[in-house]
């Protein structure tokens, strides 16, 4: 096991934890959604690092699935949420 890879995975996880703040503070809905997208990208990076750190090649497939499906939530957001009620400060009255 390579400890340097694990260390960098830890640092990337830390950046995810910091990025959660943008979900709380994000003024528009798009900011929040882009944070989730960013988490997907960081998740791919963490998985690639862990796959060499834990010496497990299956994690590359998990990273592939992450990268394939990360765009799906954003696309739904654009088509379904941003399309008809976005472009302003977004606060659902529910």
């Amino acid at each position: 096991m390579n400890w340097l890879h694990t260390l960098f995975a830890l640092i990337l996880l830390l950046t995810i934890a910091v990025g959660v703040i943008r979900i709380f503070k994000g003024p528009t809905a798009a900011d929040r959604m882009m944070t989730a997208q960013l988490f997907g990208t960081s998740g791919v990076a963490i998985l690639l690092l862990l796959s060499t750190g834990m010496n497990n090649l299956v994690l590359l497939d998990v990273a592939l699935v992450f990268a394939l499906l990360a765009a799906l939530a954003t696309l739904t957001f654009i088509r379904r949420t941003w399309h008809d009620s976005g472009r302003r400060k977004h606060d659902y009255p529910l």
């Binding site: 996880l13 995810i16 959660v20 979900i23 709380f24 809905a29 929040r32 959604m33 944070t35 989730a36 988490f39 997907g40 998740g43 963490i46 998985l47 998990v62 992450f66 939530a73 949420t81 977004h90 606060d91 659902y92 529910l94």
Partner: peptide, 18 residues
């Protein structure tokens, strides 16, 4: 804000995969 909750849930799912 329920939209914020949904975005948090997506991130939660990502972290669960990790």
């Amino acid at each position: 804000d329920i939209f914020k909750a949904v975005v948090l849930f997506i991130s939660f799912g990502l972290l669960m995969a990790l």
